[in-house]
C-alpha cells in the first residue's frame, strides 16, 4: 500500500448518496469486462446536481467529456458519504475513475464496507468538516501512516481518524486477500 497519496481535490456536500455516485440506470454494465467497466469511470458522480459538483464554485465536471478517468483523485465529502443503496458499483466507479481516497466526516455503513472489503478506495474519516475548508482543485497530500492531510495549495493541515479494525483489510487490499493471509480461505 502506498502510504503517501497526492492529488487534486474534488469537493462535494453532505449526504452524497450512491445514486449520485453512480445512477441506477448504469448498473447494467459488466464489472469484469476490461472495456465495459470503463463506463463506470465515465459515469462516476454523474448523478450529482451540477450546481453541487466541485464545490465551492460548483458546475465542475468530475469526468470531462468522453473521458473515463478524472483529473481529481482525492474526494472530499461531508457527513454520511455513500448513503442509500448497497451497490458496490459506487466505490468501484470511483476507483475506475482514478480516485484513491475519500476524506469525509462520516460514511454510510454499506458504502464504507464495500470500499474496504472490495479494496477499491480508502474511506478516511476526518476529525472536522473539510468540505468548507478545501476547494476543488486544491493539491492535497494524504499521509496514511500519520493520519494527516496537508493542503499544499493553502498550507493548512488536518487530522484523520485512525482506520482501526479495518486497517488490516485495507493493507491486505480487500477482504479476500485479508482472509487468505489469515488462513480463513485457501490461498
Amino acid at each position: 500500500m502506498n502510504n503517501i497519496i497526492v492529488g487534486k481535490a474534488f469537493v462535494l456536500g453532505d449526504n452524497i448518496d450512491t445514486d449520485q455516485i453512480i445512477p441506477a440506470e448504469h448498473l447494467v454494465y459488466s464489472l469484469t469486462d476490461p472495456e465495459e467497466r470503463k463506463k463506470y469511470g465515465h459515469y462516476a458522480f454523474s448523478g450529482v446536481p451540477p450546481a453541487e459538483a466541485g464545490l465551492p464554485v460548483g458546475n465542475t465536471a468530475f469526468i470531462e467529456g468522453e473521458k473515463t478517468e478524472s483529473e481529481f483523485s482525492i474526494i472530499i465529502g461531508g457527513t454520511n458519504f455513500g448513503c442509500g443503496s448497497s451497490r458496490e458499483h459506487a466505490p468501484f466507479a470511483l476507483k475506475e475513475a482514478g480516485a484513491q481516497v475519500i476524506l469525509a466526516e462520516s460514511y454510510a455503513r454499506i458504502f464504507y464496507r464495500n470500499s474496504v472489503d472490495g479494496g477499491f478506495i480508502i474511506p478516511f474519516e476526518a476529525t472536522e468538516k473539510l468540505n468548507d475548508k478545501i476547494k476543488t482543485g486544491d493539491k492535497i497530500k494524504v499521509n496514511i501512516d500519520d493520519c494527516k492531510i496537508i493542503n499544499e495549495t493553502s498550507g493548512e493541515s488536518f487530522s484523520l481518524r485512525p482506520l482501526g479494525d479495518v486497517l488490516p483489510i485495507i493493507e491486505a487490499g480487500g477482504l479476500f486477500e485479508y482472509a487468505r493471509k489469515a488462513d480463513m480461505i485457501k490461498k
Binding site: 443503496s85 448497497s86 458496490e88 454499506i110 464495500n114 472489503d117 472490495g118 479494496g119 480487500g174
Partner: peptide, 26 residues
C-alpha cells in the same frame, strides 16, 4: 442480502442487513 433494503426482514425478529458484492461473494 446484496440490497440495502434487506433490513425489511427484521420485522420477523431476525437480523437482516445489506452488503455489497464482495461481501456477498465471500
Amino acid at each position: 442480502g446484496t440490497d440495502s433494503h434487506t433490513c425489511t426482514s427484521g420485522a420477523f425478529g431476525m437480523f437482516a442487513t445489506g452488503v455489497g458484492n464482495t461481501d456477498a461473494a465471500f
